[in-house]
Simulated assay, not measured.
Amino acid sequence: MGFFFKGLGWVGRRPGWWLFGLIPGLIAFVLYVVALIWLATNASDVAEWMTPFADDWGWEGLFRTLIGILIFVVGLALSVITFTAVTLAIGEPFYEKLSEKVEADFGPVPGGDQPFWSSLLRSIRDSIMTLFYVLLFTIPLFILGFIPVIGQTIVPVLGALVSGFFLTVELTALAMERRGLNRKARFAILRNNKGSALGFGVAIFLTFLIPFVAVVAMPGAVAGATLMVRNGLTPPPPAYR
């Protein structure tokens, strides 16, 4: 968690870089707000489309209202989970420069410049793969959420841990790739540093639940991830180098 606060402190002392890092988050935020407004205004229609079997029920109105609320809640949860991936894909050149500046403040910057389009395509590809893994966990957790007691206690905690871990995967990608580490190697490092990965990611996940804070805090999260990769993670096992 300390690296997240260090990242916030780094951008707080450099308001120019903080404003620079806000641009992709603001773009993504507007896109998500539009999508969530559409979902909120059309959730009942989507629920009706999804539940044709309930047409003859005497209480189909209440049932579909609950399904509509559930659809919106799921959409809101997915927006939190995917916000970082989408923002990083949009802001690849912005966050690459921000991450490099953080590295330069603490010593030589590893690696070299990558072609913009190659870097962007890689970012999109890796984000899609990470989202696939996230859904492998979140869909079963969503189903378990309907179980009384467990769904209101254990499942939200597990959801925060899963989301936090994959947020760390996304945010550390820039600094790790600069060190020549592919996706397999990055996952290996974070699995070997579960405490750091979860502490960093869960803190950011909980912060991002607060409306608009995700946009404001994203530059600090990128800076903190860079600092964590530089100073707080053990090297990958030889098999993954």
Rank of each mutant, 00 (worst) to 15 (best):
F132R: 14
E103H: 01
L70P: 09
R14P: 12
L135E: 10
L66V: 15
F208K: 02
A239S: 12
I210F: 13
E170H: 08
T138P: 02
V109W: 05
V46Q: 04
S196L: 13
I69M: 11
I67M: 07
T87D: 06
S196P: 04
R179I: 08
L198T: 02
A47M: 08
G164V: 02
G145S: 13
F4V: 11
R186H: 03
A175H: 06
E96R: 07
G16Y: 12
E92K: 08
V149T: 08
R125C: 07
L22T: 07
V157Y: 06
L174I: 14
S79G: 11
F72A: 09
P211S: 15
L161C: 10
A85W: 04
G180E: 02
P237I: 05
V216D: 02
F166P: 00
V215G: 10
Q114F: 03
P52W: 09
F212Y: 13
D56P: 07
I27C: 05
N192S: 09
E96D: 15
G159K: 08
L39D: 02
L70V: 14
I23E: 03
T226S: 10
G16K: 08
G145V: 10
V33A: 02
I210G: 06
D56Y: 08
K6P: 10
R178H: 11
L135W: 15
A203P: 06
L39G: 06
R230H: 04
A197V: 12
N182F: 01
F4Q: 05
R191Y: 05
V162D: 09
V169K: 13
F83E: 04
T130Y: 09
I23H: 02
P115M: 13
L198G: 12
